[in-house]
């Protein structure tokens, strides 16, 4: 992972667009021969195509020596990701709904107008723990159930920094693949949800998730106030005993034009809710950025790219921070 020491303010500010011919591959400006060729690939069958493209782009980029600066991992950052994206910036659910629960929804809903994503600027985060608090309050979670959890990690200089970790809403979610009853599904806006009326509580998904993003309902002694609406996968409150729960991206909030609870609760504006389709991201301080450019300029990375999960959550690294190093030091 390349370490960046970059002026955060400049990158948050959407007006300060640097003149880079490769600035936004989402717009179809291909800076490499390989990505032009790759963009011709069909866009359905999301996950498979993606991994293939990813692989091919790594391969092609390695061959075309011009663009290669870093290691293989470098190429899995957003820059490489963007190069692999379809030319038309067409996110028409191509990441796709998966699972039979998703099929039910597909029949009743119009084609998605959003593909939700998140950007977390680690340089901005001061570890104040506001985001888990806001999340837990909104979802009536127990103190253990940190759907949004702030980990304290060590950077390359031996300093600690904070890593807020929501569910990564993986485009290739291991939790979904292993669920024996399709209780975990991916809705058409790319958000991975759990149907707690179907979950059998086998916890296979907890074993499969590389980000420890899933939390079980272990105990019956959780009390909820009277709530006006029934529990749904989008807003699983009250949660059901013996089933699994996790971050929902507050997809209900997003669809009503609100920020997710964690983003809204962050006093530093470190968490951006984004939409890959309209290519916009917003944080609690009101900064609105062009998402693809924001990610590209800041060389945003995903966490544990080697897991091939293709997260929809990107991180912007602060000085000396290295998520790859932390993935290894964890064990």
């Amino acid at each position: 992972m390349r370490k960046l020491s970059r002026n955060k303010q400049a990158s948050v500010e959407p007006n300060l667009i640097t003149q880079d011919s490769c600035a936004s591959s989402l717009d179809g400006q291909n800076c490499q021969v390989t990505s032009a060729a790759l963009a011709k690939e069909p866009v359905d069958e999301g996950e498979k195509e993606f991994s293939r493209r990813r692989f091919l782009s790594m391969f092609g980029a390695a061959a075309g020596a011009a663009a290669v600066i870093g290691s293989g991992i470098e190429l899995l950052s957003y820059r490489a990701y963007a190069q692999g994206l379809p030319k038309t910036n067409n996110w028409s659910g191509d990441g796709g709904m998966t699972g039979s629960g998703a099929a039910d929804m597909a029949s009743t809903e119009a084609p998605p107008t959003h593909q939700w994503a998140m950007v977390i600027d680690l340089g901005m985060c001061n570890g104040c723990q506001s985001c888990p608090a806001a999340c837990q309050k909104a979802h009536y979670l127990t103190p253990d159930q940190t759907w949004m959890k702030v980990f304290t990690l060590t950077d390359n200089d031996g300093q600690t920094y904070s890593l807020p970790r929501p569910c990564m809403q993986c485009e290739n979610p291991p939790c979904l693949h292993v669920c024996p009853v399709h209780a975990t599904f991916r809705q058409d806006q790319g958000v991975v949800l759990v149907n707690q009326d179907r979950c059998i509580g086998c916890r296979m998904c907890m074993a499969a998730c590389p980000y420890e993003a899933r939390y079980f309902n272990w105990n019956s002694n959780v009390s909820y106030p009277p709530l006006p609406v029934a529990s749904t996968p989008e807003f699983p409150v009250p949660q059901k005993l013996g089933t699994v729960g996790k971050c929902t991206f507050c997809v209900g909030n997003l669809n009503h034009g609100l920020l997710s609870e964690c983003a809204a609760g962050c006093p530093m504006g470190a968490i951006y809710n984004g939409d890959l389709k309209t290519d916009v991201a917003v944080n609690s301080l009101g900064s609105t950025v062009k998402l693809s450019k924001f990610l590209y300029d800041n060389n945003a990375v995903t966490y544990k790219p080697e897991q091939n999960t293709h997260p929809r959550v990107w991180y912007i690294l602060g000085h000396g921070q290295d998520l790859a190093a932390n993935a290894a030091s964890a064990s």
Binding site: V178, P180, V181, H182, C199, I200, G201, M204, G242
Partner: peptide, 26 residues
């Protein structure tokens, strides 16, 4: 006892997910 929701066990047979290791365990 391993399952959180043992009464839904039958679902493994109904909502079959052949990509799940647990289905093959079953």
């Amino acid at each position: 006892p391993h399952l959180g929701r043992p009464e839904r066990f039958w679902e493994i047979l109904v909502y079959v997910n052949t990509s799940s290791p647990l289905f093959w365990d079953f």
